[in-house]
């Protein structure tokens, strides 16, 4: 991020921390599509996207005062998004133990009028086969974040990010190709 945009972001975050609703709204507008993309990558379910994205931003507003370094806002926001999605996936898993769906009801149909391409279908399937931690990693990379930024978001080392990313990409390719070829 270039210094001028970092300064503008810091200023925006500080205003939002002081309760300025216009600043909070601007932050949501700036990041809503990126967060929605991240959530969709994590869950592979279109019915979860708006609800979870809303949860992420509500948590953001509530926790914003605790952010000591506004310059780290993006890493902090995507960490929040990641944790929200992982919590959601864990709850889904627990729910399935007590209320199992029949296999034919497990998938969620896409909204009426939405026609998925084969590639998107294959990607959604491939992502759904990965662990949540690996989904988060791939989603952050697709988001355009550097290894250093991802390491900061996930609170790990750059070396660990590179190693995990390599494995995650291998796994994704395997599942993507196996679905795409069927």
């Amino acid at each position: 991020m270039d210094p001028s945009s970092t300064t503008a972001l810091v200023d925006l975050v500080r205003r939002a921390q002081r309760g300025d609703e216009a600043a909070q709204r601007e932050i949501i507008l700036n990041y809503q599509h990126r967060v929605a993309g991240f959530v969709y990558a994590m869950t592979s379910r279109s019915d979860s996207v708006e609800d979870l994205a809303q949860q992420v931003f509500i948590k953001m507003i509530r926790a914003l005062n605790g952010l000591q370094a506004p310059a780290q806002f993006e890493s902090w926001l995507f960490r929040l998004a990641r944790n929200t999605c992982i919590d959601h996936l864990r709850r889904q898993k627990l729910r399935r133990i007590f209320l199992p769906f029949a296999p034919e009801h497990e998938g969620v149909p896409e909204p009426l009028g939405a026609v998925d391409t084969e590639e998107l279908d294959a990607l959604r399937y491939a992502i759904s086969q990965l662990r949540p931690q690996d989904r988060a990693l791939l989603a952050l990379v697709q988001e355009g974040r550097s290894h250093a930024e991802i390491a900061e978001t996930l609170r790990t080392s750059v070396a660990a990010v590179k190693a995990r990313l390599h494995r995650a990409r291998e796994q994704l390719r395997l599942h993507y190709q196996s679905d795409h070829e069927t």
Binding site: E21, Q24, R25, I28, L29, Q32, H33, A36, G37, V39, Y40, A41, S46, V49, E50, A53, Q54, F57, I58, I61, P111, A114, D116, T117, E119, L120, A122, L123, R124, Q142, Y176
Partner: peptide, 24 residues
Amino acid sequence: AWEQLFERAASLLSPNFADRVLRA
């Protein structure tokens, strides 16, 4: 496919998403 995924995700948000978040 990743590009399509992100485009699809953006289309899933309602037009007044930001206002709904602030109200909630």
